[in-house]
C-alpha cells in the first residue's frame, strides 16, 4: 500500500469541516481564532445545526467571522453582540444563537451587555476569545492584559496603579444565576482542542435546551500582538496566561 493509496475516503480521519468554507482567513499565521472557527464549524456540523443557527460576530479581529463559517450571521457593533443575540434568540427561540467575541468587545466596551444578557439567562452561548490584547487595532492594552504585560498602550508594561487590574470576568459571570455553564479552555495542543470542542458542544446543546447562558472562554494567543512566533506564543500563554486564567470549568450542571 502506497501513501497515495492510503488517501482514500474509507481511511479519512480528519478533513476541514464543510461549514468552514474555502475563503482564505485573514488571521495572522498561528492565530487561535482559526482553530476556534474550525471547531465551531465542526460542532455545528456534527450537531446538524447548519440550518438552524444565527451567529453574531463582534468588532475586533473576528469581525469577519461571517466570511468563513457558512451559517447566517449578524455583525454587531462593538460590544453589543449579547444584545443583538438576545433579540435574535427571543424572536427566534428555536434557533441556536451564539456570539463570538474578543476580550475588548466582551469585557471592556460590552461589559454591560455581557453581564446583563448572562444575568437574564438568555439562552445563548458566548464564545469569548481572551488573548489579553487588542489585535485588530494593533496590539493595545485589553481589559484582560496581564500585569506587567507590554502592549502598544502600555509600552512599559501594565501597571495596576496606572492602568487598573486585569479584568477576570468569567468568574463574575459564573456567579450569575442566569448562567448554566461557564468554562475556560485553550486550543494550544491537540488534547486542549478536543476539550475545547467538547465544551463548545456542551454550550450549544445547553442553549438549544434553554438552560440559560453558556460562556466558553478560550485563552488564546496573539502572536502578532505579543510579538512572538506562534509556538513561542503558546508557551508564553501556558507560562503567563494560565496562572491568571487557569483552564477548567467554573460552573457546570449535572446531566
Amino acid at each position: 500500500m502506497t501513501i497515495d493509496e492510503i488517501k482514500s475516503p474509507e481511511n479519512l480521519v480528519y478533513a476541514k469541516p464543510r461549514l468552514l468554507n474555502d475563503r482564505h482567513m485573514h488571521y495572522c499565521p498561528g492565530c487561535s481564532h482559526g482553530v476556534v472557527h474550525r471547531i465551531v464549524a465542526e460542532v455545528l456540523e456534527e450537531m446538524g445545526q447548519d440550518n438552524n443557527t444565527i451567529a453574531v460576530a463582534p468588532v475586533g479581529c473576528a469581525v469577519f467571522a461571517y466570511n468563513y463559517i457558512d451559517v447566517d450571521w449578524i455583525e454587531a457593533s462593538h460590544g453589543r453582540a449579547p444584545a443583538v443575540a438576545t433579540a435574535a434568540k427571543r424572536l427566534n427561540p428555536d434557533r441556536l444563537v451564539f456570539t463570538y467575541q474578543g476580550d475588548g468587545d466582551l469585557a471592556a466596551i460590552g461589559t454591560a451587555e455581557t453581564i446583563h444578557a448572562a444575568n437574564r439567562g438568555e439562552n445563548i452561548t458566548i464564545i469569548f476569545i481572551n488573548n489579553a490584547i487588542y489585535g485588530m487595532t494593533g496590539g493595545q492594552m485589553a481589559p484582560t492584559t496581564l500585569e506587567g504585560m507590554k502592549t502598544s498602550t502600555t509600552p512599559y508594561g501594565r501597571q495596576p496603579e496606572l492602568n487598573g487590574y486585569p479584568l477576570v470576568i468569567t468568574p463574575l459571570l459564573a456567579q450569575l444565576p442566569g448562567t448554566c455553564y461557564v468554562t475556560r479552555q485553550a486550543v494550544h495542543t491537540p488534547a486542549a482542542v478536543a476539550k475545547a470542542k467538547k465544551a463548545i458542544r456542551r454550550a450549544f446543546q445547553s442553549s438549544l435546551d434553554k438552560r440559560g447562558t453558556s460562556i466558553v472562554e478560550i485563552v488564546s494567543t496573539c502572536s502578532s500582538g505579543w510579538k512572538q512566533t506562534p509556538e513561542k506564543a503558546n508557551q508564553w500563554m501556558v507560562e503567563n496566561m494560565f496562572p491568571a486564567y487557569p483552564p477548567g470549568d467554573l460552573k457546570n450542571f449535572k446531566d
Binding site: 453589543r80 443575540a85 438576545t86
Partner: peptide, 15 residues
C-alpha cells in the same frame, strides 16, 4: 440601557 435596546432592535430587525 438604550444602547442595548437599539442593538436589540438591530438584531431583531436583522432576522
Amino acid at each position: 440601557s438604550e444602547i442595548a435596546s437599539i442593538n436589540m432592535v438591530y438584531g431583531g430587525a436583522a432576522t
